[in-house]
Design a protein around this nucleic acid. Structure first.
Lengths: 236, 236
DNA sequence: CGACTGATTGACGAGGTTCAATAAGTGTGG
DNA sequence: CCACACTTATTGAACCTCGTCAATCAGTCG
């Protein structure tokens, strides 16, 4: 896939799904496409590591990645996921800082690397693009602020319900209501910010109450509504 | 102060302290200055409220504001502070969303209101300015991500030490080592994400250990180093 | 001087973490 | 294809941090 002939074509890519790159000019697409470098990565591949200098951004053509920070005693805190159409790494490029997080593949992925020069010149010369990047960043900032409030104020039970719903909204379910992202219990714990055991206990409690069903890592979302009630803590 | 003649002059303002507006062209300054609207606000004035549409951004000429979200049962979660030279409200303008937080004055303030049209045309026409806004946003995003990790992983004790240090770095201390921002115990609790009583207990514990001293709302930072150790949880 | 808001302290209990032991998967190499 | 090693999941029990409730005190503003 390092061969550009086999690489995803940007124009195809961004008509297929929405992204910050949708609606560029032909010229911009040509630049984008010719500068990029695509690769296939298996589960557990690390794309970049917290603290390193990133030389460009990655655009996800296929697959799922987790973005996490490493906290006390090496414990992961998952900050976000990235999927088809998302870009990652641009925060560090724009703030001119080292990466504040690690990006790791959790579902085999095809990524296109776009050098920061290409990315930055696009920003400088195309104010629409620049605007949509800002839009994106500010939206993420709003979400981060909400998350801070949630973690600070909600119980673990409420946060687990919330995370299940977020995953539902982000990745959807198949025809059997199975969540279309597969995470270990530990990964779930690292999103919610709790111990693995707590996740296990509360998931099985949700199962007992028929809100969800469990089969190994498969999570069936049965009662979205009730999860929303739990998450919003309106029932208290 | 609604009278523009008495309003702070932008060029004076931004040579005095650093901000995203430093180093604009003369023309940009003229536009900025003529479009703006300045006012004096006493403690507890609300500048904008979570959920409302904002029609522009505010630049802080003097004073301190707290930016908070309202969570479960009306509880405040303080997300940030803004002081001299900072701008607030731009997140909502750029993401085209309603305000995700409330801004309230905690130390009497002079604010300049800059209509979103002025702000947006500045962004569109001045790529340096646009870049420095992005830079700012991405930095905030990085900080928000760190904060998520901290709240999720650190104990209350560690977080209080950390907050004291953040306040120290942001607002400094006077010659008597008194923190130059005055907060109620409840406000401190609403930064850390804990109960008022916990703040009180842990502050007096810190005092007992001679890390800080307390006189009403005045907090003396005596042992910055030890606070750092506690905050980083290296001592465990 | 009241009325109110903020600060402090103690007692108690619930929610969550940690530790330990065990079971269930998963993958690898011979 | 099985055996062994290793990771992941589950469950129970003990412990502990923190939040909640209640009562008291201090400071402040008309």
């Amino acid at each position: 896939m390092k061969n550009k002939d086999k690489a995803p074509i940007c124009t195809d890519c961004f008509t297929e799904f929405d992204s910050v790159f949708t609606n560029l000019s032909d010229e911009d697409y040509t630049n984008l496409h010719s500068g990029k470098m695509c690769n296939y990565y298996k589960r557990n591949s690390v794309i970049y590591t917290e603290g390193s200098r990133i030389k460009g951004i990655y655009c996800i053509n296929e697959g799922i990645l987790k973005i996490y920070k490493t906290g006390i005693d090496g414990r992961e805190q998952i900050i976000a996921f990235a999927k088809k159409g998302d870009i990652i790494g641009y925060r560090s490029i724009l703030s001119n800082e080292r990466a504040c997080s690690t990006a790791k593949v959790i579902s085999d992925a095809t990524l296109c690397f776009i050098p920061s020069t290409t990315f930055l010149s696009l920003i400088k010369n195309n104010s629409n693009f620049s605007m949509s990047i800002m839009h994106q960043t500010c939206k993420e900032l709003g979400e981060a602020n909400s998350y801070i409030t949630d973690i600070a104020q909600k119980t673990v039970r409420e946060r687990i319900a919330e995370v299940l719903l977020k995953l539902y909204n982000n990745f959807g379910v198949d025809e059997n209501k199975i969540l279309q992202i597969s995470l270990t219990r530990e990964e779930l714990a690292n999103i919610v910010g709790t111990a693995t055991e707590s996740i296990i206990r509360l998931l099985s409690e949700f199962k007992k109450d028929n809100l969800i069903d469990l089969q190994g890592r498969k999570i069936y979302i049965l009662e979205k509504h009730k999860l929303e009630q739990i998450s919003n803590a309106l029932l208290k």
